[in-house]
Amino acid sequence: MSRPAPAMRSAYPHFLPITTRWMDNDVYGHVNNVVYYSYFDTVVNEYLIRAGVLDFEHGATIGLVVETHCNYFAPLVFPERVEAGLRVVRLGTSSVRYEVGLFKEGEDQPAAQGHFVHVYVDRVTRRPVTLPADLRAALEPLTVAVQAE
């Protein structure tokens, strides 16, 4: 199984600074792997909320995570600052594939990178729906073409 090459900072159009917390570290002295997924969730949902396309309390459409993956290249540790880069590599009919790079503050190569797939569904029925036009419009600036692995 081959590891993907890390995507550099310039490959991500949106960034969110995230401050690590004491509790993020594990007994091995670095941020625990499960916390990386929390950072993924944070950058995606922060972007959607600020773009005005996620109303997690009352919105008719919600995104459910159906797939995640992460490759680790270097450890992150408390009290480092992390800069989470976000891009969209696929806008489907009812799904979005986000890619996230987690960078130590100011570094060009990520400590980790991965992806996160949302399928958008009706809040009540949980059945897939077509991406709302406002969501698609908010995600288009993040959409980049990437080479297949």
Rank of each mutant, 00 (worst) to 15 (best):
R81V: 15
R81Q: 15
V82K: 08
V82Y: 12
V82A: 07
V82S: 08
V82G: 09
V82M: 09
V82E: 11
E83K: 05
E83H: 13
E83Y: 07
E83A: 05
E83D: 15
A84K: 08
A84I: 06
A84D: 08
A84P: 08
A84H: 11
A84C: 08
A84S: 08
G85K: 07
G85W: 11
G85E: 08
G85Y: 10
G85M: 05
G85A: 04
G85I: 03
L86N: 06
L86T: 03
R87D: 02
R87Y: 03
V88Y: 13
V88N: 09
V88W: 13
V88G: 05
V88R: 09
V88A: 10
V88M: 10
V88S: 09
V89Y: 12
V89G: 12
R90T: 00
R90S: 08
R90Q: 12
R90P: 00
R90H: 15
R90C: 00
L91Y: 08
L91R: 05
G92K: 03
G92H: 04
G92F: 03
G92Q: 03
G92E: 06
T93E: 14
T93S: 14
T93W: 10
T93V: 06
S94G: 06
S94V: 00
S95I: 02
V96S: 05
V96N: 05
V96P: 02
V96T: 11
V96L: 06
V96G: 05
R97E: 13
R97K: 13
R97T: 13
R97H: 11
Y98H: 12
Y98E: 01
Y98M: 01
Y98S: 01
E99A: 04
E99D: 13
E99S: 00
E99W: 08
E99C: 03
V100K: 04
V100G: 02
V100F: 12
G101R: 11
G101A: 10
G101N: 11
L102I: 14
L102Y: 14
L102W: 14
L102A: 13
F103V: 05
F103E: 10
F103M: 09
F103C: 09
F103Q: 10
F103K: 07
F103P: 07
F103L: 09
F103D: 10
K104N: 07
K104E: 12
K104I: 04
K104D: 05
K104Y: 02
E105T: 03
G106L: 09
G106R: 11
G106T: 07
E107D: 14
E107Y: 02
D108Q: 14
D108Y: 01
D108R: 11
D108A: 12
D108T: 04
Q109M: 13
Q109P: 00
Q109S: 14
Q109K: 14
Q109N: 00
Q109V: 14
P110A: 08
P110K: 11
P110D: 09
A111V: 08
A111D: 11
A111W: 09
A112R: 03
A112T: 01
A112P: 11
A112F: 07
A112M: 06
A112D: 07
Q113I: 05
Q113L: 06
Q113K: 09
G114E: 10
G114W: 10
G114T: 06
G114I: 03
H115W: 15
H115T: 00
H115D: 15
H115S: 13
F116N: 14
F116E: 12
F116I: 04
F116Q: 13
V117E: 05
V117N: 02
V117P: 00
V117D: 06
H118A: 03
H118S: 03
H118E: 05
H118I: 02
V119E: 06
V119S: 02
V119G: 03
